[in-house]
């Protein structure tokens, strides 16, 4: 089951490099395109293969050593927990979709507010050298502080609803964007500014046509970091105290020693993180196609 699930997408996304080989009539239907793929993009074959091997080792370990299920459940059990969790309705609080929705909402809201504020304030700070020099020591000091430490405080202030989670995520995502926006705005080639000024550009025009686009590669580097941190922020917020969300569900199933479900929830979290990452990468490729960072991401896309 795992085998077909992993090899099929791989053959489907095979780059259209060597059509002649794939059309070869010699018996081995799958082997020939797979071999061609192995030569051109070995990661497309080796990456799913590694997954299969790891699952096999896990399964073998569970069969041979028979550890208690609350320590290492066999992969099959995790799979069934995942299937049963995902087959529940999105409005059913006993299923995964409901909680994944809550966590995703918290993470995305915080991400949008935090990164939006980070970019805006970062650009404003970078606009004035003096403001930047005055604020920079504070920014660095706060950035090196583990923001998660304030999570319990937020629960006291705002209760067990989604507000403290959004707030934690906002703060966590704010700083990478603040720092990267300042760095991006400072990295703009002064000749580009001179060019715009020599054409009588207004400060607004300089910002939107020169500074902001020039800083985009830096901003996207910050957004990629913040995307990962946003889910972390939401989960930590839920750990401290919550009525819903993947983090709350992990704690709940943990206490029930339903470890297979905890593993299944890790899979859900990984899927959420991966889709957020891929979205960010697609946006970056669209808006930063011209930067070397963007082009490199293009080349080693998964």
């Amino acid at each position: 089951m795992v085998d077909t699930a992993t090899t099929h997408p791989a053959t489907a996304t095979r780059p259209p490099g060597r059509p002649g080989k794939a059309a070869g009539p010699q018996g081995g239907r799958l082997e020939i395109p797979l071999l061609g793929l192995l030569r051109e993009r070995p990661e497309y074959v080796l990456s799913p293969l590694l997954f299969v091997v790891l699952i096999a080792i896990w399964h073998a370990a569970a069969v041979i050593f028979e550890p208690p299920e609350f320590i290492l459940p066999p992969p099959g059990m995790v799979w069934s927990a995942l299937v049963s969790g995902l087959s529940a309705s999105p409005f059913d609080p006993s299923g995964f979709w409901y909680h994944a929705g809550v966590t995703a909402f918290e993470a995305l809201s915080g991400f949008l507010i935090g990164s939006g504020a980070g970019i805006t304030i970062g650009m404003a700070v970078a606009h004035s050298r003096l403001v930047e020099r005055v604020l920079y020591p504070y920014i660095i000091a706060i950035q090196s502080l583990p923001k998660i430490a304030v999570a319990p405080l937020f629960v006291i202030w705002f209760g067990f609803g989604i507000e403290p989670k959004i707030l934690i995520t906002t703060i966590i995502t704010f700083f990478p964007l603040l720092v990267n926006s300042i760095a991006g705005a400072n990295s703009v080639d002064p000749a580009r500014i001179d060019l715009a000024r020599s054409c009588n550009a207004t400060p607004m025009q300089i910002f939107f046509k020169i500074t902001l686009p020039s800083a985009l590669p830096f901003i996207f580097a910050g957004l990629n970091m913040a995307a990962v941190l946003s889910i972390l922020g939401a989960i930590v917020g839920e750990f401290v105290g919550a009525q819903a969300g993947i983090g709350m569900l992990i704690l709940q199933r943990n206490e029930l020693l339903d470890i297979a479900s905890v593993y299944a929830l890790f899979v859900v979290l990984a899927a959420m993180g991966l889709s957020l990452h891929l979205t960010m990468r697609a946006l970056e490729r669209h808006f930063c196609f011209w930067s070397h960072r963007g082009r490199k991401a293009d080349l080693d896309s998964v």
Binding site: D189, A191, D194, S198, C199, N200, P213, F289
Partner: peptide, 17 residues
Amino acid sequence: PSQEVGLVFQQPVLLPW
């Protein structure tokens, strides 16, 4: 800055996007 003046820099300074 004036419209009557055009400026060419040492580098092309073209916007890559």
